[in-house]
Design a protein around this nucleic acid. Structure first.
Lengths: 281, 281
DNA sequence: AATTCTTTGTGTACTTTATACACTTAAAGC
DNA sequence: GCTTTAAGTGTATAAAGTACACAAAGAATT
């Protein structure tokens, strides 16, 4: 019934019609006008977004500067970084809150976003800096805050960072220092979830531009899984994945033999995917 | 670095010493005295436990009867079922809250429990019955409640249900009718998470008694994955899993050839597991 | 125009795993 | 001792995993 069914349904797609049928998971990356209606924020529920960005060399995570100044003399009391996140509006779905955080930072919509874990232990706001930060912000550090963790995947070159006022930047995940609150834990769990997902479903392309080369895709796997892969074997493997559509188009402006470009076809994937596979079947 | 390393570390374990080194994931199923200190419950955060129980024929889920009577004449206003769950105490970790719910219902500790998803959308308490139920209970149905979903795995025969006052029972997952709140959604997501996990890591034995036969283990996979497996191929596959330890002991009291019993060795598993495996490596 | 540099793109032999398939054996109940 | 029931085992074929090396394409340099 499940299992590795070899005679799977397979939709033939000609190279001519490819551009029409291919989207990033049927969602489109585009800008929109911010049409946020100001409503009341829920004080107890927040979403934290671990926004991963790939730049061909590193897996990066988007971090926000958190600097607390002395009210009187302006002296810097401490300065560190946090993951991106926000409290949710009272009538807002949590997925929408995560999309909103992402949109406010990147101006992008429709990018890959997945809930991976929730953090709600009573001691998650216990460090002095965290308490001082919340107090300064008029919040009660003794109240438990539930943080629902999402991770997002995008190509760094697809995004021009825009966050009014606060400093936000890409940091390679293996260069991340001590973060605010329990954000190191959240990042660690996001990485675990990302690795698992990457081994389970074809989401590697979400970290690349719409058109990508096989070497770029291979690099995604190598960097995130921390392993080296053989080029020929990797290509043999992806050749079996009919949803990776070769285009009649090549890389431009590279000082070497230009590679063929590929796209991911969500349609083909949905129609050819095996139900489940892994440990036993 | 990762990948399918064939020369994996392997601890030889003789049949003589097996009983000492084998536990259910190093945790012990035992009873304890309830030592709950009554503290304040957080009104906004709850845990819902999808408690799965396997009985060799079905995958069951533990459900609680929810009947609302008219205060005046005692007439039954409605009667349906819910998943098991509770709000958390103000100083309690969410994993501890889930363990507590489980312990209160089953008297068991140390059983497999995993956070799988959080449910917090604003419309999750919108059905009239749900609102009436909360009102009757002195709670505000307009306040958003975050529910952190956990699933638990156990063998139904390991547990004698004990919940003072309220009716609680095992229901086969494919016979579950409409549940309270968004509990059908939660159950569906728990099933998806269970299937994924079952294909990813050896947790099937968590649904069986400590000592089990290979046919019982096979049945776990068949029922949960909804597929039929070939007996010889299944055994060939588990023969490679060194953490399934054959015992010098056989089934008793069965009207046919008794099967050899096996145990899961958490030690061997931890020492021989490949780091990650699946889609690409 | 020729040379260098860099990355692309391809094939084969071997090993391991997956799949399909049927009969004998052990114990209990009658 | 005969029947019933599930346990336990092997082989042949197909598919996938793994290890490994060199020619070709374009850009940059001389």
């Amino acid at each position: 019934m499940f299992g590795n069914n070899k005679s799977i349904l397979y939709f033939a797609i000609t190279l001519v019609s490819v551009e029409n049928t291919i989207t990033k998971s049927s969602r489109i990356r585009e800008k929109r006008k911010s049409s946020k209606i100001v409503k009341e924020l829920n004080k107890y529920i927040s979403v934290d977004c671990v926004i991963f960005g790939f730049d061909y060399d590193n897996l990066n995570v988007l971090l926000v500067d958190r600097t607390l100044n002395n009210d009187v003399n302006g002296e810097v009391l401490f300065s560190d970084m946090t993951l991106t996140g926000n409290h949710i509006y009272e009538d807002e779905k949590i997925e929408d809150a995560a999309s909103r955080v992402l949109f406010d930072l990147t101006g992008l919509e429709g990018i890959y976003l997945e809930q991976f874990k929730t953090f709600a232990n009573p001691d998650r706001i216990s460090k002095p800096n965290d308490r001082a930060w919340l107090l300064n912000d008029g919040r009660d550090p003794n109240k438990r805050i539930v943080s629902i963790g999402f991770f997002a995947l995008l190509a760094t070159q697809d995004v021009t960072l825009e966050w009014k006022g606060r400093n936000v930047k890409w940091v390679p995940v293996n260069e991340v220092k001590e973060l605010a609150f329990d954000h190191n834990d959240i990042l660690d769990e996001a990485l675990i979830a990302l690795r698992n997902k990457l081994l389970q479903e074809p989401i590697g392309f979400e970290l690349l531009p719409d058109k990508f080369t096989l070497s770029q895709l291979q690099k995604v796997y190598e960097i995130i899984l921390g392993t080296e892969l053989d080029k020929r074997n990797f290509r043999k493997k992806v050749a079996r994945m009919k949803y990776l559509i070769p285009l009649d188009e090549k890389q431009k402006g590279v000082a070497h033999k230009p590679a063929r470009l590929y796209m991911f076809s969500c349609d083909v994937y949905e129609n050819t995917r095996k139900d489940i596979f892994g440990f036993i079947v």
